[in-house]
Computed example of a mutant assay.
Amino acid sequence: MPSQTADSPAARPPIVVLCGLTRYWEQLAEAALYETAADRIVLAPGCNLKQPHPLWATPAQADRLKPVLDDLHLRKIDLADEVLVVNPDGYIGDSTRREIAYAHRLRKPVRYTH
């Protein structure tokens, strides 16, 4: 096998997507830290609608954004090699269940933090 040089592409690290409730935002961030330190590319929820922000300041804005974010997260699962469910105390909500089922349909490995 040829040796890798600065000009040659490196083998791509595995891509892991984090799934879980945004109420566990700190745990999601901690999981992203550990996965990154384990040499994995991390895809994660990019917005926490439970924290105030001008993009979703009104209920109408939040209602328009939620389905966009839900679909975007499924596209992240499409890109990922595996799924890590961040589920403190074993809790899994409805959206996360849907994401797990989607990952299983794609035959993606699914791991759980708890």
Rank of each mutant, 00 (worst) to 15 (best):
residue 3 S to F: 14
residue 4 Q to H: 14
residue 9 P to E: 08
residue 10 A to M: 10
residue 10 A to F: 07
residue 10 A to E: 11
residue 12 R to S: 10
residue 14 P to W: 01
residue 16 V to D: 02
residue 16 V to A: 09
residue 16 V to M: 08
residue 16 V to I: 15
residue 21 L to P: 14
residue 22 T to C: 05
residue 23 R to Y: 04
residue 24 Y to E: 07
residue 24 Y to H: 15
residue 33 L to C: 12
residue 34 Y to I: 07
residue 36 T to D: 06
residue 36 T to F: 06
residue 38 A to W: 02
residue 39 D to Q: 07
residue 39 D to P: 00
residue 42 V to K: 02
residue 43 L to C: 11
residue 43 L to Q: 06
residue 44 A to V: 08
residue 45 P to K: 01
residue 47 C to W: 03
residue 48 N to K: 05
residue 49 L to M: 12
residue 49 L to K: 02
residue 49 L to C: 09
residue 50 K to P: 00
residue 50 K to S: 15
residue 50 K to N: 13
residue 50 K to F: 06
residue 50 K to M: 14
residue 53 H to W: 07
residue 54 P to E: 03
residue 55 L to H: 01
residue 56 W to N: 00
residue 58 T to E: 00
residue 58 T to H: 07
residue 59 P to V: 12
residue 60 A to F: 05
residue 63 D to A: 15
residue 64 R to F: 11
residue 66 K to P: 00
residue 68 V to D: 06
residue 68 V to F: 09
residue 68 V to Y: 10
residue 68 V to I: 15
residue 71 D to F: 12
residue 72 L to C: 12
residue 72 L to S: 04
residue 72 L to N: 08
residue 72 L to Q: 11
residue 73 H to L: 13
residue 73 H to C: 07
residue 75 R to E: 08
residue 75 R to W: 09
residue 76 K to N: 11
residue 79 L to F: 10
residue 79 L to Y: 07
residue 81 D to K: 06
residue 84 L to N: 04
residue 84 L to Y: 10
residue 88 P to N: 03
residue 90 G to C: 09
residue 90 G to W: 05
residue 90 G to P: 13
residue 91 Y to C: 02
residue 92 I to K: 00
residue 92 I to G: 00
residue 93 G to R: 00
residue 97 R to P: 01
residue 98 R to K: 15
residue 98 R to L: 14
residue 99 E to L: 03
residue 100 I to H: 01
residue 102 Y to E: 07
residue 103 A to T: 12
residue 103 A to F: 06
residue 103 A to G: 09
residue 104 H to F: 09
residue 105 R to G: 09
residue 106 L to R: 13
residue 107 R to G: 07
residue 108 K to P: 11
residue 109 P to E: 04
residue 110 V to P: 03
residue 110 V to S: 03
residue 111 R to P: 02
